[in-house]
Amino acid sequence: MPNLRRGATRLRIRGPAVTVAIRVAIFLLSLVLASVLIFVVCAALPGDIAQVILGQNATSESLAALRHSLGLDRPLLSRYLDWVGGMLTGDFGTSFFTRLPVADQIATRLAVTGWLVFFGMAVALLVAVPVGMIAAVRRRRLSGAVISGLSQIGLAVPAFWAGILAVFIFAVKLRWLPANGYVPLREDPMQWAAHLVLPVLSLAVVQASVLTRYVRSAIVDVLEEDYIRTARAAGWTRLGALWRHGLRNASISVVTVLGLQLATLFVGAIVIESVFALPGLGQLLLDAVAQRDLMVVQGTVMVLVFAVLVVNTAVDLSYVALDPRIRTARR
């Protein structure tokens, strides 16, 4: 289990403006490092991409022509700068195969993955916060042990297996919901929702198990704090004190995990899209990998990493709002 309070302790000594500035600088630096890493793996390491695309039997003239038309004959550094510069203006390059702009392909598929991740996290939180609280308060009773046991099992179940089982139960046996596919929200909201229910639930089952454990341990920590006893001595019941004074304090450590979990949620979405044949970023990415369409892979991975970094930065900054020890450190 990672240290729950890593961000909080590291940022504690500084004033709020400095904290924000440092965090934004780290974000930009991470973005640069990530783009270099992606570029090196996709553009520098694989060798001759033209050869990969045209196959072993290609003539040297056609290889040279393709290299030139893809811009592969230029130095690595200028190709990298072109790629990054293009992305800053919304140009993610053109697909090696379809010759369509990568940005357009990403844009049309972003919504599917976005909905999946958003609802997945929302459902997971709605389950994990109350259940984790109960598990913490009743940790010495049977109900607490049962919740801990269930979350332990949920942690071991792969999301895609949960998805397959859900399809079997709700689509094959009960015939309540569609087994796969996607309908855009604008076309038919009811069908849109029906197609999202099973993917979201399978994604949320695993996330809820992870989060339940974190919520539980954060609340167990808080329950032993002196201010909870003070609150009870002032007239709160055990649960009242936890609600009024415990949750806010526990949320500081839970929010850290939330950031890390969102990264795994994006990844989980890729797998779940594959289970339910949803036309999201994951499908785009997997199709591109199968075709070795590295321009699409590069762009899509960059978008996903960007999303993860934005979320992590937002999480770290939310301490400034949640924890007055950071917010008012300058006084």
Partner: peptide, 23 residues
């Protein structure tokens, strides 16, 4: 530690997709 932190933005699956695409 900050540099290793950047790796947190690359979950195993994303790295595997990159490597599978390249090799």
């Amino acid at each position: 530690m900050r540099v290793t932190d950047v790796l947190y933005a690359f979950p195993a699956l994303l790295l595997a997709i990159l490597l599978a695409a390249a090799f």
